[in-house]
């Protein structure tokens, strides 16, 4: 395993507020699916924004393939926690916006990808609708499709399935895991749902309250293997893992920083 993303002695402060505990070190391998679990306000979004280049660490650095991450670009795609889309573009145009500035794709390829991801998230029939006319869960799917269509190697997803119904959530969890394996993507995924974490992750990282410190790491791949199926979710291994994580999350929320 080669490290794709490395945090080396990172600190992050907003004014006097320390967001990540110093020193913060973390390595994420290429093609690894990492899930962040932790109490609300602990700094998960901030960590993600720093990988995406939208926030800069206060000291030391975050490297991607050995080079400092720098500003944002399309190779690090982001699904924001508030799942915004542009109200003046239709659903299909919003999804296509993910590829708007890519010059390495032809127009036909872009159209093909757009329709593929619209269909994947079940929004094909709403292609020509404006986002203000669709539900919150559908808007969240626009943001997911836009980010997947963009085709980045690193996917940063901040509670991307929060507003979805259980069935759609399971479907997209399966698709995401499949896409991640097939296209060899590195994924950093934030959720508060331990079952989602257990199903998706190669590795789960549990954070303390702010300032974020790594409380525990769970090697899910060693426990459940690479392939995840719907049936697994009812298995005893999965259940044990889920309970274990739930205990860790409770402990992390209760512990004073």
């Amino acid at each position: 395993m080669t490290a794709h993303l490395t945090f080396t002695n990172v600190t992050k402060r907003f004014g006097k507020v320390e967001v990540v505990a110093t020193p913060f070190n973390l390595q994420i391998a290429r093609n690894e699916f990492v899930v962040f679990l932790g109490p609300s306000g602990c700094g998960k979004t901030t960590l993600m924004r720093m990988i995406g280049g939208l926030d800069t660490p206060s000291t030391e650095d975050i490297r991607l393939d050995g080079a400092p991450v720098g500003g944002p670009d399309w190779r690090r795609g982001m699904v924001f926690q508030s799942y915004s889309s542009f109200p003046w573009l239709t659903v299909a145009e919003n999804v296509a916006f993910g590829m708007r500035y890519r010059t390495d794709l032809s127009e036909e390829e872009k159209l093909g990808r757009r329709d593929h991801y619209l269909d994947l998230v079940g929004l094909y029939e709403f292609s020509d609708t404006y986002p203000n006319r669709v539900s919150g869960g559908m808007r969240q799917r626009i943001a997911i499709a836009r980010t997947l269509a963009a085709g980045s190697d690193v996917l940063l997803m901040d509670e991307p399935f929060g507003a979805l119904d259980a069935q759609r959530r399971e479907q997209l969890q399966g698709e995401l895991r499949r896409i991640q394996r097939r296209d060899a993507k590195t994924v950093v995924f934030v959720t508060h749902d331990v079952e989602e974490a257990a199903f998706l992750a190669d590795r789960v990282i549990v954070f303390s309250k702010r300032p974020a410190r790594i409380m525990a790491e769970i090697d899910v791949r060693a426990r459940l293997g690479e392939d995840r199926t719907l049936e697994m979710r009812d298995g005893a291994d999965f259940f044990a893992l889920r309970n274990e994580m739930l205990r860790l999350v409770r402990a992390s929320a209760g512990e004073e920083p």
């Binding site: 280049g53 939208l54 915004s84 916006f97």
Partner: peptide, 20 residues
Amino acid sequence: EYIEIAYTVGAKPGQVLKDV
């Protein structure tokens, strides 16, 4: 966030101003 979406799909500052 509109501005940030544009940046994360690779827009340059001029494109962010004009397109978003």
